[in-house]
Design a protein around this nucleic acid. Sequence first.
DNA 1: AAGCGCAAGGCATACGTATTCACGCGACCC
DNA 2: GGGTCGCGTGAATACGTATGCCTTGCGCTT
Lengths: 347, 347
Amino acid sequence: MTAKTRSRGTSDKPTSFDIAARAGVSQPTVSRALRGDPTVSAATRMRIEAIAHQLNYKVDKNASSLRRGQTMTLALLFFEDPLPDGTYINPFFLSMLGSILRTCAARGYDLLTSFQHLSADWHMDYEDSRKADGIILLGYGDYEVYKARLEALRAQGTHFVRWGAVDPDGLATTIGSDNIAGGRAAGEHLIARGRRRVAFIGQADDHYPEFRDRYHGMAQALRAAGLAVDPGLHADSLSVEQGGYDAMQRLLVRGIPFDALFAASDLIALGAMRALAEAGLRVPADVSVVGFDDIPAAATTQPSLTTVAQDYRLAGEVLVDTLLRRIADQPTQASLLLPRLVVRGSS
Amino acid sequence: MTAKTRSRGTSDKPTSFDIAARAGVSQPTVSRALRGDPTVSAATRMRIEAIAHQLNYKVDKNASSLRRGQTMTLALLFFEDPLPDGTYINPFFLSMLGSILRTCAARGYDLLTSFQHLSADWHMDYEDSRKADGIILLGYGDYEVYKARLEALRAQGTHFVRWGAVDPDGLATTIGSDNIAGGRAAGEHLIARGRRRVAFIGQADDHYPEFRDRYHGMAQALRAAGLAVDPGLHADSLSVEQGGYDAMQRLLVRGIPFDALFAASDLIALGAMRALAEAGLRVPADVSVVGFDDIPAAATTQPSLTTVAQDYRLAGEVLVDTLLRRIADQPTQASLLLPRLVVRGSS
DNA sequence: AAGCGCAAGGCATACGTATTCACGCGACCC
DNA sequence: GGGTCGCGTGAATACGTATGCCTTGCGCTT
């Protein structure tokens, strides 16, 4: 019994040495065979594969990652402003999670998932600690807060991509919807429905570039039609249902008349519609409502919600593929995905 | 320059040897210091920690996992029956995801997420390939289909826990709600509201033990009150919104009168309420509706949905902690969590 | 017939950490 | 004052895989 041939109990996981011993070859040959190295003859490879399968042998990913310097794993980091319910995750991002999982699987990668609040320390050491080859950042939140973190990540040479407003300073790591075009489509739709006074709920300042762009797109459409953009019809809100509800109540208290609402997200729209219903206003008879995202609930609420759909499916694919190109040191570019207006009952 | 002191470019990640060299100690001392081994003197440890922090040193988890034989990672596996939209994940499980993520983080574990259809091959080799120390299984679906897989997992000695109906054959790896008690609570509530003829939508057969138990709990309550359980008022449905919608339409076509609906899940309830509204029936005036799960949308739909809330927060904690006890070879037991009736506008 | 080239696979080693064992040294005991 | 103990640390090695380099054997060339 040589030093390399350890006796093994039945419960121990087999190693490439076990396969090698049973196949009458050396351990490196097993490694080469299973990785498809052409220097291993077909006969040998098939024999090794048969034995490996029979023993239920699986390559030890830790050893493999250690040796190869890559983990075949991506990390997904959700982040959000702190919210009352700590376990809350935006439904749109959850939809994207499915697409990302699918794409990762198709590319042979695993996905490590994490989530945390913007205010907390970012323990984004997945790549530093070599558990992942790159990071996908997903979240809405105060862009100013984490801009510095992004710079630090880039300075470290960490591989990452981000979903959000495409950054003006040219980070080629950002994938996002064309929020201006989406906002414009919403505005044009409301105008075509004969609406003249469009309210907006959502943050429209530079800390929330996505929402700001949606607002500006809508405002563009109004101005192009010769309509006024009344700052009095804008109410701030975080992208949560309760926020939309509260904002709509504040809007109603102001008493400025409006006949349409463009909400910065579907969650806001749902909350606002709840407040409208309580106030005795009918949707869409009294107020037309358009949201943004097309979360699953949008199709089934009463009335169903007209919204600007973001293509989460494509988004997930582009995020993963862009990240993989980054990891492979291939050139990447920021991507602007075109959102699509979905007309339903609320308008 | 010894063999152990490699020259390193600025971009290379530092290793414990680098820390050791700068601290004037050996590599093992660095390892001990950073793991809090008391045999390292406080002075030495602090010096090492300072240098490690300064160089942004992170332990290489691959090397660490390889050496220690554990990964400090858990795998989460969503599974469902194949659905039209491939990226769909049940919102209740998504809520649980947040809780699981939080608990994992609190216990120092990372979470590897995956999801797939029941019909596909289960590539559940995370533990075999040593990427995870254990597996959390999350999903509704045909229990008969994967029962054999669970047996195989157990035979392999894989560490796993499962959310679902507590298994009669005594797998001490199952965490679930007390669905019978939940169904009974729903039934008693409807009876207290003066309802006499309660319809049920959802699968109530042995392939879906959770839903079956909910049905039987409700039936118990009816019988205890001397009310009839009419099989004609039961319609099958997958746990998706559209399924509830379709099932309610079928129910209405039958023409058997009913004044209440107990839905096996909130998604079903939402779909059913949509069908009721389209049929001109008012909730709760004509039909009281009670769901199950308490997904986020339940609180905000119009009318808001009375439902049997599952404590996803506690569920996530119990799942993780039970799995960790399994991994540590400590005794575990199946847990039945008590659901809680949340009365809202639909009843 | 000797040399050459190529195919197939073995040998040695590196990846970075954690642990076992051994060692030096001061204190303490009798 | 010599043995003993324990504290703090270093030396050596194992974890399992992947790869650069070398060896072997065989067919073929000139």
